[in-house]
């Protein structure tokens, strides 16, 4: 299973970002292969609708779970629709979060 985590930078020791739709990077962790890939968030600078746009991106990466401190209303609606589970977490590094899965 793949898990998307919002990240401030593209490395495992980076901290979880404070936002979902406008986070800097998405860390996509694969629980089967235990590998993590980093992608810049294409929705980061969207003038409007960054949340749904970010949902599109992680859905295209086949993520079934997503970790962020909080989610906006529009993003939440779309994540529910796509049955992508939302997990709230904050103040940790990406590697610390991965250890929890």
């Amino acid at each position: 299973m793949k898990i998307a985590i919002v990240s401030e930078k593209n490395s495992l020791d980076a901290r979880i970002d404070s936002r979902f739709g406008r986070c800097a990077y998405f860390a996509i962790y694969d629980t089967d292969s235990k590998t993590t890939e980093f992608f810049p968030n294409p929705a980061k600078d969207a003038p409007e609708g960054a949340g749904p746009e970010a949902v599109k991106f992680i859905a295209s990466k086949e993520a079934k779970k997503v970790v962020a401190p909080e989610f906006g209303k529009k993003a939440e609606d779309m994540l529910n629709k796509l049955q992508i589970e939302m997990v709230n977490d904050k103040d940790k590094t990406i590697s610390e979060i991965i250890k929890g899965f």
Partner: peptide, 10 residues
């Protein structure tokens, strides 16, 4: 304006 929520493969 990102007003169309589209995921082609789903």
């Amino acid at each position: 304006f990102n007003a169309i929520f589209f995921i082609g493969k789903h």
